[in-house]
């Protein structure tokens, strides 16, 4: 059997790098991933919170509850993606 990369191992490789978090419902976060746990609760730094309305909120450092996380995209949000 070929070695496979487990989903959480992929996220482990993103620690220290920009990441884009898409929540259930119309909310997104982008920032630098500092750490996470088995529930995919995440510590993020230099965060921008994107509202359903497109409003942006800057947050220096947060613990994001993993409960409503839908998708994680390594590398962060593409430039000029959201306005």
């Amino acid at each position: 059997m070929a070695t496979q990369l487990l989903p959480l191992e992929l996220i482990d490789r993103c620690v220290g790098s920009p990441i884009w978090v898409i929540m259930k419902g119309d909310k997104e976060f982008s920032g630098t991933l500092l750490g996470f746990d088995d529930f995919v609760n995440m510590v993020l730094e230099n965060v921008t919170e994107y509202d359903y309305s497109g409003a942006q909120t800057k947050l220096p450092k947060i613990l994001l509850n993993g409960n409503n996380v839908c998708m994680l995209i390594p590398g962060g949000m593409p430039e000029g993606n959201e306005s």
Binding site: L6, L8, E9, I11, D12, V15, L34, G35, F36, D37, D38, N41, M42, V43, K61, L63
Partner: peptide, 22 residues
């Protein structure tokens, strides 16, 4: 190998959720 939570120094530092909380 399979443990997903990063704990570089063994102890919880400020980088993972429990370390951040403390």
């Amino acid at each position: 190998m399979s443990a997903p939570a990063p704990a570089p120094n063994g102890a919880a530092d400020a980088r993972d959720p429990s370390g951040f909380l403390s």
